Simulated assay, not measured.
Amino acid sequence: MTRLAVLGSPIAHSKSPDIHSAAYRSLGLDWGYERFELTEPELAAFLGSRGPDWRGFSLTMPLKAEALALADEVDETARVTGAVNTLLLTGSGSERQLSGFNTDVAGIVNSLAEHGVREAANVCILGGGATAASAIMAAAALGAQAVTVAVRTPAKAEGLHRQAEAAGLALRIVPLGDALAAASESQLIISTLPGGSDTGLVFDAELIGRVALYDVAYAPWPSALGAQWQAAGGQLISGLGMLLHQALVQVRIFVAGDPFAPLPDEAAVFRAMTAAALSNPVKG
């Protein structure tokens, strides 16, 4: 049996096994998809010990940068973002190769489009980790000209300037406490903060009413930030959509080796993935 898995820490909450398993059942493939709790120092040894029955891996935090370093080749999106969230294993023995991809950008863009958000001239991103780099590229795809990243420690996010420059964006990095002012100038807020984070930020109802919040977290749901949008009736978009759309591209990679090759009856595959994600909702 062909084997796949999602790797990261923490990983117990991940819905990827449900979503991917539904996709392979829909495609008539007897493939198994597991989960493994791993940290960065453990990744190389884990990958090196996998047998010929392994096809690939989904990577979540904190492994995306380490996966980039371990890949034999990477796609352009992974190179620019500095983050690999998908590894494809091909060949065998001395010819075995790890190819790295970033499907997070497509996941963000496609899930936003699903909710009618197809453009934003100014975007505010909360958090400065690996997903923030993908959010910057997604902002560029939405036609943004300027992006503000609000983080707890601005000095640690300076590396994001490289992604912004590659995407042709003007980037400003500010302390998280300045997010309220930055968001007031934006058409879209993308939160890349962990779902359990409480920033202490309180957004006013007027801003919530006119600026959509795309919260990449989906567990617990809603996040503390998302709860503010829910209470005020603002447009709140869950990261579950990102998970589904990026997973669809991962399935393309695992099945065909190509992120752009549509799957047989792809619409039916995506419906099966969505049903699996919604069958056991994550609650806060």
Rank of each mutant, 00 (worst) to 15 (best):
L7G: 06
G8R: 00
G8C: 13
S9M: 07
S9K: 07
P10L: 12
I11N: 06
H13L: 11
K15I: 10
K15W: 02
I19N: 06
S21A: 08
A22S: 03
A23P: 01
Y24A: 05
L29P: 10
G32S: 12
G32P: 11
L38R: 12
L38Y: 05
E40T: 13
A45W: 11
L59M: 15
L59Y: 13
M61W: 09
P62A: 04
L63A: 12
L68M: 13
A69G: 02
A71G: 05
E73T: 14
E73V: 15
E76F: 06
T77Y: 00
V80I: 14
V80F: 09
T86C: 11
L89G: 03
L89Q: 06
T90Y: 04
T90V: 12
G91M: 01
R96D: 03
G100D: 07
G100P: 15
G107K: 01
I108N: 04
I108W: 01
S111D: 10
V117I: 15
V123D: 07
T131F: 03
T131G: 03
A139D: 03
A140K: 14
Q145F: 06
R152K: 05
T153Q: 11
P154Y: 01
A155I: 00
K156P: 13
R162Y: 01
A164N: 14
E165K: 10
A166R: 09
A166Y: 05
G177A: 12
L180Y: 00
I189Y: 09
I189P: 02
G195I: 03
L201Y: 03
F203T: 02
D204A: 10
E206C: 08
I208M: 15
R210E: 09
R210S: 13
V211N: 08
L213F: 05
V216S: 12
V216P: 01
A219N: 10
W221F: 15
Q228R: 07
Q228K: 08
A232N: 09
G239W: 03
L240I: 13
L248W: 07
V249W: 13
Q250S: 09
V251D: 04
F254A: 08
F254S: 02
F260H: 14
A261V: 09
L263E: 07
P264V: 01
A267Q: 14
F270G: 01
R271F: 00
M273D: 06
A275S: 10
A276T: 07
V282W: 02
